[in-house]
């Protein structure tokens, strides 16, 4: 039996709290998780929604509590959260919840960390947060320099090699070292986390038509192709560089387990076009398992009941599956 998942509250003025309640309703008999957040806040929110909330003393209790109430590891907020109106005073508690989840996962008490969305701006202004983003912060906590992001949609896993950078910076950042490392991390994760003993990876070209033999850009021939050649020699099953506009068709997708893409939108466009509300992010290469929904805090609709919990539900399911695969390995 794998341990429960540690779910962080994210920004409590965003949609995190309400989608957490909805996720508990769907998953209470399927898998255990504990929310790290303010138990009083969650109890007040859960009452009108008919979701009982139970404050637990340790995450191990989550499995037993889960079927009858949402288990919460109490992490008090300074001020009562108001949906849609983020409060800088709560920034420190939002960060503390992340820290605590990571500690639990690294100690083996939690099978994985699942994170609700944060607002980087709120954390910067409220707590002097000095990291480029959520994922980078988790990487720092895990002592990892370059985390790898995988987007998981129902029919596609996609890994961008460069992530939150301008398009104009992508070609220079796309070094053989970064590409090789990203493919290696992806390959290892497919084996270990997704239980695929012989992963097949498709690698996108950088330029239109993958450069068409150098007619439209050189990097596909000078950077990508040599890296793939070297990694194939190590025994990896790699296809590419492939024209990015024809590698996401259903028949093409049937031929690989993950697509490695050169930049953020090259990976995100197919993922979101294929399954907008059910994408999940997985951070690869960390010393613990981490998944998250693929949306933000959505302050604009927080508290209106319009938030869609599907992505969080899938993030929890995937974290649980990965935890099980690692335990079985």
């Amino acid at each position: 039996m794998t341990p429960p998942l540690a779910l962080t509250c994210g920004d409590p003025a965003g949609i995190g709290p309400e989608i957490t309640l909805a996720a508990w309703r769907r998953l209470r008999h399927e898998l255990p998780f504990a929310l790290i957040g303010d138990a009083d806040h969650m109890a007040a929110l859960g009452a009108p929604a008919g979701v009982p909330v139970a404050r637990i003393a340790g995450i191990a209790e989550a499995a037993q509590v889960m079927p009858r109430a949402l288990p919460v590891l109490h992490q008090p907020f300074t001020s009562a959260p108001v949906p849609g109106a983020p409060d800088l005073g709560n920034a420190a508690a939002v960060i503390a919840a992340i820290d605590r989840a990571v500690k639990l996962a690294r100690a083996g008490d939690a099978a994985a960390v699942v994170t609700n969305p944060i607002s980087k701006k709120v954390l910067v202004d409220g707590a002097g947060f000095a990291h480029p983003g959520h994922t980078e912060y988790l990487a720092a906590l895990g002592g990892v320099a370059r985390p790898v992001m995988m987007l998981v949609a129902p029919e596609l896993r996609a890994v961008p090699v460069t992530i939150h950078v301008p398009i104009s910076a992508v070609p220079a950042l796309l070094t053989p070292e970064l590409l090789a490392e990203t493919i290696r991390v992806t390959h290892a994760a497919l084996r270990r986390d997704f239980a695929l003993p012989a992963p097949r990876i498709a690698v996108a070209g950088l330029n239109p038509h993958a450069g068409e033999g150098g007619l439209m850009g050189t990097e596909d021939e000078t950077v990508i192709r040599p890296v793939l050649g070297a990694l194939r020699a190590e025994g990896m099953d790699l296809a590419g560089p492939l024209p990015a506009d024809t590698m996401f068709h259903p028949p093409a997708r049937a031929g690989y387990d993950a697509a490695v893409c050169m930049y953020h939108d090259q990976a995100l466009i197919p993922v979101k076009t294929l399954g907008f509300s059910v994408g999940v992010n997985v951070t690869l290469g960390l010393p613990f398992v981490r998944t998250s929904p693929d949306h933000g805090t959505a302050f604009g609709i927080a508290g209106t009941g319009r938030a869609d919990p599907d992505s969080l539900v899938e993030a929890l399911r995937l974290a649980h599956r990965i935890g099980r695969n690692r335990a079985a390995a």
Partner: peptide, 13 residues
């Protein structure tokens, strides 16, 4: 703004 930005989505659609 660029080739694959439109072509990836249009071909999937």
């Amino acid at each position: 703004m660029y080739h694959d930005q439109g072509q990836i989505a249009m071909k999937l659609l």
